[in-house]
Design a protein around this nucleic acid. Structure first.
Length: 646
RNA sequence: GCCGGUGUAGCUCAACGGUAGAGCAACGGUUUUGUAAACCGUAGGUUGUAGGUUCGAUUCCUAUCACCGGCUCCA
């Protein structure tokens, strides 16, 4: 028997007999490691412990302490769930069951039974039973693929048969779940990796059931998906479940009712937002920021109509590419389209003048309200609506100016998100299968975006084939206060529209050339961004955005006159203030202002304050912060507002 | 659009074949309060909408609309 050399993470080399597995390696290192080993990494791949080692393999053994092992735990738990479901519903056909970001799911096709929330506890207890059996997961290479496909088909496992057919040349493997006597109880076509056995599975929770198309294609059958999660221990699981609860409390649709922010009415239609005064105030502040910041950064602000003749959309190509999302309005002779995008209008503004390379870039910005006919099931609160206002801008520039322009936008986005205390992740989406323009331009554009990101030293992920049909794009995923991500700003390159509209500028050599066009939004849409902000702040907007900044609370009726003076002075200083002179108890008024309305400052005043010509200040989340003269208080909050303090 | 769930007072929920009830909010009164809910009372609903079954429907059935969890799509 010959020896092989294994490289351990510390760089040391260990000699092992040929044919040994990762598990043997773990045992040879220490008993404790062997007991705690969940999986391993060989090279770049996470593998099961049963994997046979090869000479020169770089091996890292994973325990529950290594972040990479969590996906293995979840994947194995998903197999246990599939096994439990098949035990309870023998007719259930298995589709796929991967680990996902915060847990895992498994898709089933169960004839004659529709899973509901009530089934989840039953499945969970069956899983508990299986886990207690201390089952092992063993990996087998499928030698005779065709025979196995036939077997799957005979069992009715049509989805597994389809998957195996597809992966027949990838040396497919089968994971068999066995009890302690070695009896095979369950098997699943699976690439792995898996835990050695179920003893690691200690904390899991089934979350919800949902429909999902087989392979994500809406032409395929709809399967039943069970979402679940698993962690190494109950503490982590509970923490995650608390997080879900916290997220639910922050739901902008719930907070909308409590804080009187917006509503959607049947009489108007779904996906159309009524902005109540409170949210309109937040929007006004944000629009003010948006306008002044655009001026500073060399943008010109424009306004364009809400509809245009069909002809315009024929030229832009939207009539063919975007038709199902457009609303048409028929006048006696002419057909109009409610604008789903602002770009064609900005292009026509470009066309109104002649440009040279010296007068570019031209940056046109608009808070442009667009209407898109969304599929009914897609609508959601403020996040997905039919009518919304994009903080849209289009930049027309020369190829030489492109990278600087992209960098400037990245700066703008970065600067803006910092104001809201939001972090972000960046994704670059490249050429899709269906695209317009020539590949050469596409390659250049993708390279340009990459360069711009490199100059800024920004880390990003690449979404192959996820670009728009007219150009590649950079997306910014906002991370809110509790770590959830939201689609926010995007920068899209466009070679298509400038050509369709035959846009020109005169270059330094006198020749006429076609400019490059950039589409970009910073917030995305006012609606979606407000939704994100509400959840980010859990409804407790910072002072500069708060619909009501200060509540004035006189303790008894005899203090009303003084309170009125305080109120008038604050109002005069441009503060959004409310005088609460109802004959309710002071405690009631404080509680309502802070808890229900989330007002940042409550000013309480009684005999003492009148005597000293002061106000007693209570800050949201901080409690009483002392007595201030009114001027000192105004000065303090004016500074906070100006600095947009969080 | 698709799969599943849910629609009861302004809000949160109860009743589930016998004709709808509570808390908060609102309104009226009492209380005049010292840092997160004073007390008493009044009013408020063709139970999402339209059909059907039934002596009788909020409850059962059908259709439809909206919302929720997802899939797909997307700012």
């Amino acid at each position: 028997m010959s020896e092989i050399e294994i490289v351990l993470p510390d760089g040391s080399v260990k000699k092992m007999d040929e044919g040994v597995s990762v598990c043997d390696l773990a045992k040879s290192i220490s008993e404790g490691l062997a007991r705690n080993a969940a999986a391993a990494i060989i090279g770049d791949d996470v593998v099961s412990l049963g994997t046979t080692l090869k000479n020169g393999d770089k091996v890292q053994i994973l325990t529950s302490k290594d972040p990479q092992s969590l996906a293995v735990l979840r994947h194995s738990t998903s197999h246990v769930m599939a096994q439990a479901v098949q035990n309870l519903f023998p007719q259930a056909k298995l589709a796929i069951g991967p680990a996902i970001e915060n847990g895992f799911y498994y898709d089933f096709d169960i004839e004659g039974h529709t899973l509901t929330e009530e089934d989840l506890p039953k499945i969970e207890s069956e899983m508990q039973r299986l886990v207690k059996e201390n089952l092992t997961f063993e990996c087998y290479k499928i030698e005779d693929v065709d025979a196995k496909i036939a077997e799957f088909k005979a069992q009715g496992e049509i989805y597994k048969a389809e998957l195996l057919e597809e992966h027949k040349n990838d040396s497919p493997t089968l994971y068999i779940t066995k009890d302690k006597d070695g009896n095979a109880l369950f098997n699943d076509l699976c690439r792995g990796p898996h835990l050695p056995n179920t003893s690691f599975i200690k904390a899991f929770k089934l979350l919800n059931v949902a429909g999902a198309y087989w392979r994500g294609n809406e032409k395929n059958k709809m399967l039943q998906r069970v979402y679940a999660t698993a962690f190494w221990n109950k503490t982590d699981l509970d923490e995650y479940l608390n997080f879900l609860e916290e997220a639910q409390k922050r739901d902008h649709r719930k907070l909308a009712a409590q804080l009187d922010l917006f509503s959607i009415r049947d009489e108007i239609g779904s996906g159309l937002i009524l902005w109540h005064p409170n949210l309109a105030t937040v929007r006004e502040e944000i629009e003010n920021y948006w306008r002044s910041e655009h001026r500073k950064r060399g943008y010109q602000i424009v306004n364009t109509p809400h509809m245009a003749k069909s002809q315009l959309w024929d030229i832009s190509g939207h009539s063919s590419h975007y038709r199902e999302n457009m609303y048409f309005i028929q006048d006696e002779e002419t057909e109009y389209v409610l604008k789903p995008m602002n770009c064609p209008f900005h292009i026509l503004i470009y066309q109104a003048n002649r440009y040279s390379y010296r007068s570019l870039p031209l940056r046109l910005a608009e808070l442009g309200t667009v209407y898109r006919n969304e599929r009914s099931g897609a609508l959601q609160g403020l996040s997905r609506v039919k009518g919304f206002t994009q903080d849209d801008a289009h930049i027309f520039c020369t190829p030489e100016q492109l990278i600087d322009e992209i960098n400037a936008i990245i700066d703008f986005v970065d600067y803006t998100l910092k104001i809201f205390g939001m972090d972000y992740e960046v994704e670059l989406s490249t050429r899709p299968e269906k695209f317009v323009g020539n590949i050469d331009n596409w390659d250049k554009a993708e390279e340009g975006l990459k360069q711009a990101l490199a100059v800024k030293n920004i880390k990003y992920e690449i979404n192959e084939g996820d670009g728009a049909f007219y150009g590649p794009k950079i997306d910014f995923k906002l991370k809110d206060a509790i770590g959830r991500t939201w689609q926010g700003a995007t920068i899209q390159l466009d070679f298509n529209l400038p050509e369709r509209f035959d846009l020109k500028y005169q270059d330094s050599d006198g020749s006429m050339k076609t400019p490059i066009m950039l589409h970009r939004v910073i917030f995305g849409s006012m609606e979606r961004f407000m939704g994100v902000l509400i959840e980010h702040y859990a409804g407790a907007f910072p002072l500069w955005l708060a619909p009501e900044q200060v509540a004035v609370v006189p303790i008894a009726d005899r203090h009303a006159e003084y309170a009125q003076k305080v109120y008038d002075k604050l109002l005069n200083a441009g503060i959004r203030v409310r005088l609460d002179d109802r004959s309710e108890s002071m405690n009631y008024k404080i509680r309502e202002a802070l808890q229900d309305k989330k007002v940042p400052y409550v000013l309480v005043m009684g005999d003492r304050e009148i005597e000293n010509n002061e106000v007693a200040v209570r800050a949201r989340g901080k409690g009483p912060i002392g007595e201030f003269s009114l001027d000192a208080f105004i000065e303090k909050i004016e500074k906070e507002i100006k600095n947009r303090e969080q």
